[in-house]
Simulated scan of single mutants.
Amino acid sequence: MKRTCENIYKNARQSAGLTQEQAAALLNVSPRTLSEYESGRIIPADDIVCKMVVVYKAKHLAYLHLKQSTEVGRRFLPELHILDLPRSVLKLQKEVKDVTDIHSEIVDVACDGEIEEHERETWGYIEKEILEMVGAGLSVIFAKG
């Protein structure tokens, strides 16, 4: 597992105010197994992460788990920065404005139904901006309230 994700499970548990022993009991795993997850030595199975999401009341953990522990997540899911709700909303508004500002470029490239060779660089920029907006939208959903 990547070093950057070794504490996502621990952070979620601690944010829920649970000790390892309490969380292990609620998750129906041993404290040692939970410790292995939290140290990054073992990646928890999806069913365990689903339990963690519910027990810890941490929807963002599902996303972070996929983003950091799977090749698909690492390659294709947008970055997620979990902030407080007001800052998340402001970030989303900024990203929506950025996409709105390139609306005419999006239409110009997409109107004929294909991305031509000379449009590839522009489309790459468009994709980047849209992914940033999607990430900001998810941040609002997962915001610390």
Rank of each mutant, 00 (worst) to 15 (best):
F76I: 07
T33N: 06
S69P: 00
E6P: 00
G137C: 13
A45F: 03
F76G: 00
C50S: 13
R75W: 01
V107S: 08
L83V: 02
F142M: 02
L18Y: 12
E121V: 11
K91Q: 14
A25P: 00
M1E: 07
H60V: 01
V49Q: 03
N28A: 12
G17E: 11
G137W: 02
S88Q: 07
A23I: 10
R13C: 11
V89G: 00
E117Y: 06
V55P: 01
F76S: 08
L26G: 01
Q14F: 05
I106H: 04
A23Q: 09
V107R: 12
G145E: 11
I8E: 10
G40H: 04
I106A: 09
E117Q: 10
P86W: 10
A136H: 07
V140K: 03
T19V: 10
I48T: 10
Y9F: 15
L64G: 00
E132C: 05
C5G: 15
E132R: 08
N11K: 13
T100L: 14
L66H: 05
E129I: 10
T33G: 01
E129V: 13
L77H: 09
I82G: 00
L66T: 09
A58L: 00
P31R: 12
K10C: 08
I43Y: 00
A143M: 03
S88I: 06
R13I: 11
F76N: 08
T100M: 15
A25E: 15
E71S: 10
D101L: 12
K97H: 14
K91L: 14
K51P: 02
P31W: 03
G113T: 06
I106G: 05
A58I: 03
E105M: 09
T70K: 07
M133Y: 01
L90R: 14
K2R: 13
R75S: 11
E117H: 05
Q22Y: 03
I48L: 05
A110T: 13
G137F: 11
L61W: 01
T100N: 14
S88A: 15
P31L: 09
L131M: 14
E21Y: 06
R120F: 02
E132I: 01
R3Y: 10
V107I: 15
A45L: 09
P44H: 05
L138M: 14
V109M: 07
D46V: 13
A136F: 04
L90M: 14
Q22I: 13
V55G: 02
Y37C: 04
G145A: 07
